[in-house]
Design a protein around this nucleic acid. Structure first.
Length: 858
DNA sequence: TTAGGGTTAG
């Protein structure tokens, strides 16, 4: 058992057992004073005044002037200057003063040396601080020990701090409150918490606990940082007899940092009511709490308090305000944040970075972020790892890996490439640009992989539809002993959802329950989305019913799920239920509602909600909402109305809207409108192969083969490759992919035999092949053969021979299902008595007993 | 001599 033995407390006066070299204390000795020039005192007074007012450059000039005039500045002068540099955190100036001191012939006393330790400690140079401390030998006093213990504690060297504390006890010094505060700080990590508790016991005995504000602060942090125990920290705070603005601010900050933002704001109000004056630190932390809660009006009130308190010039407060306005802006506007930034008289790396980050976070301002970075560099401001993280994110948003690589090269030049968060941002940047190989390389060369690194790469694989790699990495995380979190599960679920691997989804579901994430709000929403995207809407409804507090996201997820499955009436009923509970729909909810209407052709219902969006909820329709309406009108056959609607839009229709219209033209065989739509897409996205393919299909279905040839030639010239049609099916936790006419599967022979038999069976039932869907100019008989090589039919045939007869066959397709396949599936469901669930790029089709859930409306 | 702060990747 560890026993902390302390020397006995000093009696009345501190022991004067330190023999201090008399030469160290000669500054005010009568002998030197008599030698002083009459100008000495006025100069010294002026210098001290300047230093105390923070005019350090002028103070240092005065020091130089004194030296030039032979008025050798004394130790007190240097000491005042140094303390001023420390107070204003102008460490470089402090070091300049130190070098001037070294050039003078003065022999620094312990007061000055202690200031130097503090200077180097605060500037992060613990090596120099330590060498000054070691050089003091016998002349170390309580202050030197305290400064050194504090230096180690602040520079991440907790063990050295604690051992220096014990060295001091051995040296015979009795710790004062400063020293105890410093060593308590060193105990503010979980590794040293046990020793912190011993020191805590000692602190209670000394009586410092209730009377000294510094000790109180250190203890609060020992509980917060060491054990994450806000409760005990608050108890310490409540028991402190003496509090000041710093202790209040510390408590507010810790509440805010640990996510107890409401408590932080309440504490701020208590503080003001109790008559304490908030300072820049207080405002900064409270504004942060406000930003987290997205309380714009409170944020604005705080901003006006900042103005009244004359703190607008402070960079630190400015950063918090910039961030607050970003997080509270409903429309993603950067106007207010930019105003704050532009009005700041001084900028540092943090204010630049906070604003750059603001542009990235506000959405759609990534180019402005990069522009601001260029201005920052022009102004000779050195970026840090936060700057590069945000910039790489901007490049990822822009899907611009070339720009990302340039930024990364800059990070390398600044020696910041090995910082974990820069490496992770690089992975994310590549992943979001679809370059998984480069993302993997960036991941593999990481100096240290943390949970965020794993989550980033897992999410990258999941989003890029490689769920096998995602799962392998998931298993690898578990081997490293790093504990996975909600992010990991959410990524895996979205990976399973995107390829429709319900078996994998179920596995993750089981594992996340085991890991204790069952009641996690985000995870529950991901589960709803996973099950509905995998075709199991019943399981999605089950998860939804188990959620205790439904948020707008969970409601929207289930409405969207029902909509995709074509259960429009249920989707709209859910939407009404949500309104009854008092939850306000957001813009995504309306996308779900409108798409529910469009999947079944409920035109009147669709118009009703589209109009209500703005009239009742003040939500301005976005491009996606217009696209839903175009889909609704177009697929119902009102193509002219759809065009009129597009022309009446308050902004230019983008390729998404035109693509939707083109899809509708294909369904209704309207070549004229279709051609116009395709041209509009190609105008905006000249390298989108899908537009050319859709147009070519349109010509093919009306037999205009020469046009088909022309378009294919055009594509070839532009080097455009069409996305290959592909279907897949999951059996026994493995996903099997099939392309058109695929024979690569080991059971290909059985699959094609099954297809032949199916073909005969369904023809007997009345199926007539619709060769209009063959988009090549070949003989009729060959066209029929082509039809039976479509990937969705192959996948279904494989499903029939390899899965249990009791379960529905779930097949997924990357493109829209072909019209002939849709008809064939209905007949296959009669011929085999099996239910077939087919998810295409647009929606779900449930085939059962010869009918499809879409009522042939798709 | 001493206590509190702002920007950060999934």
């Amino acid at each position: 058992m560890f026993v902390l033995s302390l020397p006995s407390p000093p009696k009345l006066l501190p022991p004067s057992n330190l023999t201090i070299n008399p030469s160290l204390h000669n500054t005010s000795s009568p002998s030197t004073q008599t030698l002083k020039h009459p100008n000495f005192e006025p100069f010294k007074d002026r210098l001290i005044r300047l230093a105390n007012q923070g005019h350090l450059h002028q103070a240092i000039s005065t020091l130089d002037l004194m030296t030039q005039q032979g008025l050798s500045p004394d130790l007190v002068t240097y000491s005042v200057l140094l303390k001023s540099c420390i107070r204003t955190r102008q460490f470089d100036l402090g070091k300049l003063v130190h070098s001037k001191l070294s050039h003078s012939l003065l022999d620094p006393d312990s007061v000055l040396l202690n200031s130097l330790i503090t200077l180097y400690s605060k500037s992060g140079d613990w090596v120099t601080a330590n060498s000054i401390f070691n050089g003091m030998g016998e002349h170390r006093d309580m202050v030197s020990w305290s400064a050194m213990i504090s230096c180690f504690a602040h520079n991440g060297m907790q063990s050295q701090s604690i051992s220096t504390f014990f060295d001091m006890l051995e040296f015979g010094e009795y710790p004062n409150q400063f020293c105890l505060a410093a060593v308590t700080q060193a105990c503010s990590n979980s590794k040293n918490a046990w020793i912190g508790k011993i020191i805590f016991g000692f602190v209670i005995k000394t009586g410092y606990f209730e009377s000294d504000v510094c000790i109180g602060c250190a203890l609060i942090d020992m509980f917060v940082k060491g054990c994450g125990d806000l409760g005990s920290a608050k108890k310490v705070f409540d028991r402190m007899r003496e509090r000041n603005a710093v202790t209040w601010t510390l408590m507010i900050t810790r509440y805010s940092q640990l996510g107890q933002t409401k408590d932080a704001i309440e504490l701020f109000i208590d503080m003001v009511v109790s008559g304490f004056i908030p300072d820049r630190f207080t405002f900064s932390s409270t504004i942060n709490a406000c930003a987290e809660l997205e309380l714009l009006s409170l944020g604005q009130q705080l901003h006006s308090l900042v103005v009244k308190s004359r703190l607008t010039l402070d960079v630190c407060v400015g950063c918090s305000l910039v961030d607050m306005y970003v997080k509270c802006a409903v429309d993603g506007s950067m106007v207010n944040s930019r105003k704050v930034f532009d009005r700041m008289p001084d900028h540092n790396v943090m204010s630049w970075t906070a604003t750059i980050t603001g542009y990235v976070q506000s959405g759609g301002h990534d180019k402005e972020a990069i522009e601001l970075y260029c201005r920052m560099i022009d102004g000779q401001v050195v970026p840090n790892h936060f700057t590069f993280s945000s910039l790489l994110k901007a490049c990822g948003n822009l899907s611009d890996p070339a720009a990302g690589e340039q930024i990364y090269t800059n990070a390398v030049k600044h020696g910041l490439a090995s910082v974990n968060c820069v490496g992770n941002s690089l992975i994310s940047m590549y992943a979001r640009s679809g370059r998984m190989e480069d993302a993997r390389k960036a991941f593999d060369i990481l100096f240290e992989k943390n949970l965020v690194s794993y989550n980033t790469i897992v999410d990258g694989y999941a989003k890029n539809l490689d769920s096998n790699e995602a799962f392998e990495l998931f298993n690898e995380i578990e081997d490293t002993g790093i504990e996975v979190d909600a992010f990991t599960f959410a990524s895996l679920l979205s990976g399973a959802a995107s390829i429709g691997a319900v078996g994998k989804g179920e596995q993750i579901h089981a594992r996340l329950i085991k890991a204790g994430f069952k009641s996690n709000q985000c995870i529950s929403n991901s589960l709803i989305s996973m099950y509905s995207k995998c075709g199991n809407i019943e399981a999605a409804l089950q998860v939804f019913s188990e959620i205790e507090d439904h948020t707008v996201i969970s409601w929207t997820s289930i409405v969207m799920g029902l909509a995709k499955h074509g259960f429009a009436t249920r989707a709209l009923k859910m939407f009404q239920e949500m309104l009854k509970t008092g939850i306000k729909p957001n813009e995504v909810t309306y996308i779900a509602v409108l798409s529910a209407c469009s999947h079944v052709g409920m035109i009147n219902e669709g118009w009703k909600h589209f109009n209500a969006m703005y009239k009742e909820r003040r939500i301005s329709p976005r491009m996606e909402h217009y696209a839903c309406m175009v889909d609704l009108l177009g697929r119902s056959g009102f193509l002219e109305e759809a065009i009129q609607f597009i022309n009446s839009m308050p902004f230019m229709a983008d390729a998404l809207v035109w693509r939707t219209l083109l899809g509708a033209c294909q369904v209704h065989g309207n070549t004229e409108v279709g051609k116009h739509a395709a041209k509009m897409i190609i105008k905006q996205e000249p390298n989108d192969p899908a537009a050319y393919i859709l147009l070519s299909n349109l010509y093919a279905s009306s037999g205009q083969w020469d046009e088909v040839v022309r378009i294919r030639k055009n594509m070839k010239e532009r080097n455009l490759v069409k996305e290959a049609g592909c279907s897949w099916i999951e059996t026994e936790n493995r996903v099997y992919n099939f392309h058109v006419g695929d024979t690569s599967h080991p059971q290909a022979r059985e699959i094609y035999e099954e297809l032949d038999q199916l073909s005969l069976k369904i023809k007997e039932l009345g199926y007539v092949p619709n060769t209009n869907f063959v988009l090549h100019d070949v003989e009729e008989e060959q066209k029929e053969q082509y039809l039976f090589q479509h990937s969705e039919k192959i996948a279904v045939a494989f499903g029939l021979i390899s899965t249990s007869k009791l379960k529905p066959i779930r097949v997924f397709k990357n493109l829209r299902v072909c019209g002939d396949c849709h008809t064939a599936m209905k007949y296959i469901s009669i011929a085999t008595g099996r239910e077939i669930v087919l998810r295409d790029s647009n929606r779900f089709h449930h085939f059962k007993g010869g009918a499809c859930s879409c009522n042939d409306y798709w």
